[in-house]
Structures are given as C-alpha cells and as structure tokens.
C-alpha cells in the first residue's frame, strides 16, 4: 500500500509506486512535481521564493528556494534510482493573491520564472503547468503515473 505524503511550505518529499503526494493551498508559492515513469520515483516540492543567493541568513532552509530545493530533490530521486534522462515536470502556483495597486514586486511571477530556469538547467522538460492568475491551488500527485490533479475553490478540480 502506498503512503499519502503531505508536503508543507518550504518542504519537499520523494515517493514511489503507489504513493500519493499532496501539497495544500499554493498561493504565490510553486508546487513542482517531478517524476520518472520508468522507475515510479517521484518528488514534489513546495517553494516560497525564487533565489537563495540574496539571503545571507544561515539558518534558512534550502527547501524554501527554487534554486536550491529542486536540485536537492532531483539528487535524492537519482540516489533512489530514478533516471534523470526520463524525468518530467508539472508545475502549479505562482498566483497573485492580493491585487495591490502599489505591489512592490510580483513574487508569483518571479517564482514561476525561477522554477522554469532551474528545471531548464536540470534538463527536465515541463510538460504541463497551471500557473499565475489570482487563486490558490492544491496539488495532488500520483507517484507511479505522474498524474496530477489541481483543485481550487474558484475553479474546482482539473487534471494537469
């Protein structure tokens, strides 16, 4: 029997086979599902911020940033036996939750760009995405098949 793995904010987990990975209520954060159907090894990451290099503070976690979380997760998947060449990615999130007139920076958009750039460097193709707009998303990810379901209060459920 597979497990249900819950991924919090600034967190990632790797599952396999019948495992189901879930991350709740992505706002401006990004959920990245990476899977390798040949081995059924899959990871889901929930990042908050694009770039760790601007952060001087030592006690902050690598799982929070696109540029550190995704390479770490892929490395774990590889160590468990996944084949990087057959990895594929699906991403969701990066919304603008509050429409402010003087929004200092659109963190959602910067997160989307950082995740895409990091995946490009890792040579993992993005085969589906549900990003941007202005609502929260919960992401449910079946490790073996790579199927992803997005649910939101506004749009209901859809397959990704």
């Amino acid at each position: 029997m597979g497990q249900k793995l819950i991924i919090g904010i600034s967190d990632w987990k790797v599952g396999r086979g019948d495992d189901i990975l879930v991350t709740y209520a992505l706002g401006s954060c990004i959920g990245t599902c990476i899977y390798d159907r040949t081995t059924g090894i899959s990871g889901l990451s929930h990042i908050m911020l694009p770039d760790s290099t601007a952060i001087i503070d030592g006690h902050t976690t690598r799982m929070k940033f696109a540029d550190t979380a995704l390479p770490d997760m892929v490395e774990r998947m590889r160590a468990m036996g996944a084949n990087p060449a057959s990895m594929k990615a699906k991403i969701a999130g990066g919304a603008v939750m509050f429409q402010t007139t003087n929004s200092k920076f659109n963190i959602g958009q910067r997160n989307i760009e950082a995740v895409k750039e990091t995946l490009r460097k890792l040579r993992i193709p993005i085969i589906a995405e549900d990003t941007g707009l202005n609502y929260g998303r919960t992401m449910t990810f079946w490790a073996q098949s790579g199927d992803v379901e997005i649910s939101s209060t506004v749009m209901g459920k859809k397959k990704l």
């Binding site: 904010i9 209520a25 706002g27 908050m48 976690t61 939750m97 509050f98 998303r137």
Partner: peptide, 23 residues
C-alpha cells in the same frame, strides 16, 4: 485588499514577505 480563498494561499503572502530572512 481582499480575497476569498484557501487560508494557506492567503497566509503565504505574509509568510513570503515577512519570512524572507527567516523561517
């Protein structure tokens, strides 16, 4: 500014803006 949505998505806004320097 107001939005009606999931609490986690709403709370991610202060988490991101206030939490940039810590966890």
């Amino acid at each position: 500014v107001m939005t009606v949505d999931m609490l986690g998505a709403i709370m991610s806004v202060p988490a991101i803006e206030m939490g940039e320097m810590g966890d």
